[in-house]
Write a protein that binds this DNA or RNA. Sequence first.
DNA 1: TTTGCATTGACTTAATTAAGTGGATAAAGA
DNA 2: TCTTTATCCACTTAATTAAGTCAATGCAAA
Lengths: 102, 102
Amino acid sequence: MALADPTRRRIVEMLGEGALAAGEITARFEVSAPAISQHLKVLKAAGLVTVEVSGQRRIYRLDPAGLDAFEAWVRQVRGFWHASLGRLEQELANPEKDEGVV
Amino acid sequence: MALADPTRRRIVEMLGEGALAAGEITARFEVSAPAISQHLKVLKAAGLVTVEVSGQRRIYRLDPAGLDAFEAWVRQVRGFWHASLGRLEQELANPEKDEGVV
DNA sequence: TTTGCATTGACTTAATTAAGTGGATAAAGA
DNA sequence: TCTTTATCCACTTAATTAAGTCAATGCAAA
């Protein structure tokens, strides 16, 4: 699950504030550049983010469609209309049948 | 010309002592890893070195055939049997018709 | 129960590709 | 003769791919 990892959730939160280049995301963490690159790959494969190539840079943005799908999943699983990453944390700590979601 | 650059000539000299991984070559210079990678690419395209992939490493070695061709070129240009990199330096400082060689 | 083994996932290191910069050189026109 | 313009070429930064480590998890056999 793309959002099962706390680092990836933090990336999604960051992108919620606005688009960022891969290097800007890396700078906000203490792990290596390849580690972030790999997380971004997972998020992209899950349809949660998009990339725009801008010269040497790769600009990452949240993908509204992917977030919609994610929100729908949260509604289904929890019965809430407004998902918070805090509650999601609880959910993910006790995974039942989350297969194939986002 | 692959051997026109002093960095590349130093790489060839180093490999004369024995095979080295790309990273070991990089460590012996003060330029970035991509810069060395690019030099190695030129040397490989010129047939002067070979690469062996060994797990995560790329082992670079002199290619005897390429060196033979180079030696033949030096003989032709200078009329000497034993080329020295020092004399080559002189030659390359005043290039006349070195096209297509090595 | 427990032991052993295969799988998964986040991470690192090694190396490269891609894109852009800056300096030197050469050719061409005023 | 200048000057300008174009082209190389070595280099850097940005980002990635590939390969391997390590710890946690799951699970089947003893």
